[in-house]
Design a protein around this nucleic acid. Structure first.
Lengths: 194, 194
DNA sequence: TTCTAATTTAATTTA
DNA sequence: TAAATTAAATTAGT
């Protein structure tokens, strides 16, 4: 694979990452932070110096071409991370009777309601309803079929491979990764039953 | 909780699995196969603090020991909850001209018992032949009332709690879990509409 | 028809 | 990364 192909994937992946990780957007807006933040995902590529320069140029061009609306160049701080639209709910909705060890439920902070109706007591056990972190994406049959074929070829695609799949299917790379995780879990168990 | 009580629950829970995994029945009927394998897991059990956690692990191990003949140890997953394999038909078997969006239910073939027809090559490329599907269980009013009360106390019972409920209601634990899932979904759904 | 048990799957969390 | 579990969406039985 040539570096040009890798650049394309890097660019596409950077774009897809914005959708899933809004906190990355300020990084991508900041020219000084584009390169390290993106290249950090490619540590194992060991690109040459020339490749690194071309990568940086490509990303800066991407930045200008996209015309990302200007804003205060936010630095990566813990403050800015709190602006993520999907903060997890703390443990106040965990049931007190059964402090379930291990897996926490995905609970999201209560959305500001205009309804003044007081909530029923029992509702405190359940997370608020009309706010979801990320809409459940539904893949088309075409996308699923392609993912399935790729899974048959390699159930453990690395980052570059996932970027390749992401580019073809137009699915964000993080969704690709999750899909393969779930597909592996399904495959390992379904294989036991014959 | 004493050892005997824990062991009793383990056995009971295993017995409830008979309904969901008929192939387990001969194993569970053989007490000589249950007791040594389970008792060995409790050699180092501290019944006070870590009792529940280890009980949970022991239950999972019990499923592994008694569970599925051949294949890797059967862990408790959402896959293992399923009564009988009712996998989705693969997309390659969807009608080509009408790629349906959303979930397509598979067309279930007639149950064939003791069929001598050789099984088609696996990997769920072809719809399986030998299964029943959607055996809907009906809960009694007593059972539903108890489940409802438990839901009010804790909408998210963990595995041990579900085993308790299963023991009391005489409902297999996987059905308990599904009931709570659906109950939570109903609860959240109605919260949005009011 | 409504209600609900069952199924599937993307997403999340923990280790 | 596996494993478990969740919500969401759907299918289907009574």
């Amino acid at each position: 694979m040539t570096y040009d192909a890798e650049f394309e994937e890097i660019i596409y992946t950077a774009l897809t990452l914005q959708d899933d990780y809004p906190m990355l957007t300020p990084l991508l807006k900041d020219e000084d932070m584009i390169y390290p933040s993106v290249l950090g995902m490619f540590n194992d590529l060991n690109p040459t110096m020339e490749a690194q320069e071309k990568l940086q140029e490509a990303l800066i061009d991407l930045y200008s071409v996209l015309g990302i609306p200007q804003g205060p160049p936010m630095k990566r701080t813990s403050e800015s991370n709190k602006e993520t639209p999907c903060p997890r709910m703390d443990t106040k909705y965990q049931t007190n009777n059964q402090p379930s060890k291990g897996h926490k439920r995905p609970l999201f902070e209560e959305e500001q309601r205009k309804s003044k109706k007081p909530r029923i007591q029992m509702d405190d056990h359940l997370p608020p309803v009309n706010f979801r972190c990320r809409k459940r994406t539904v893949f088309s049959n075409e996308q699923t079929l392609f993912l399935q074929n790729q899974f048959n070829l390699n159930p453990y695609p690395d980052f570059v491979s996932r970027c390749h799949i992401a580019k073809i299917t137009r699915i964000p790379e993080p969704r690709i990764q999750v899909w393969f995780q779930n597909r592996r879990a399904r495959h390992l168990l379904r294989g036991t039953r014959s």
